[in-house]
Design a protein around this nucleic acid. Structure first.
Lengths: 105, 105
DNA sequence: TCCTATACGTAGCGCGACTACATGTAGCGG
DNA sequence: CCGCTACATGTAGTCGCGCTACGTATAGGA
């Protein structure tokens, strides 16, 4: 997929993939690739800073855990994150309606 | 609508609104606003440079005409522009499928 | 006469995803 | 046991592009 089309929708993707489960950064990248049939292959330089940004915003919470000698920072949605996800989903629907309405009337 | 979500889709909008008709810049802005029920209100500083960029890319052609003392630069799709529009529409469908698939599985 | 709508355009900013790099462990094949 | 790959996290700097904020100018109505 063309780079940069994601712009403005990355937060929604990250929140959505964490809906109902806890995942660490690397697993988030894999989960997004899986859910999109390989269409989404986000670089770590995109995902990790975004996760920290979402945590600073209060939408995610993280904790360290160690699995077989490897440290992982596991993220989960906060309650505010749940609400943010709902808002992002609503905005996504509006966005597709508006643009789609122009592109294929 | 949140600013910047448009990023990467502006070209598609401009090509789509010129599909099958000739319009000048100001009319393009109005047409987009109309087709989106007012959701799209693009500033001239966004549209005019984009039109020139699309013309440089060979997707649009323009000519000056004067209507009641006002000069207008009227744009129309080139054949390459038609093909580009088809490609943009295909990419839009793929984009919505991918992101939508992640957001609401 | 002044204000609004029409009409085109440029300069510069800022945001956010990207590229490229840095660091380190676990496990496997040879 | 050595090197390679997968796993895992992170930072620094770049760059494209839509936006803000201007500047210019005419037509027409209040």
């Amino acid at each position: 997929m063309k780079a940069d089309t994601l712009r403005g929708h990355l937060d929604a993707l990250l929140l959505a993939v964490l809906d109902g489960r806890k995942l660490h950064g690397y697993a988030i990248i894999e989960a997004l690739s899986l859910r999109s049939d390989g269409a989404l292959d986000l670089p770590t330089g995109t995902v990790y800073p975004a996760l920290r940004r979402l945590e600073r915003a209060g939408w995610l919470a993280s904790e360290w855990d160690v699995v077989s000698g490897r440290k992982r920072r596991t993220y989960r949605l906060t309650r505010a994150g749940q609400q943010a996800l709902a808002a992002e989903r609503a905005q996504w629907r509006e966005f597709t309606t508006v643009i789609g309405g122009v592109l294929e009337p």
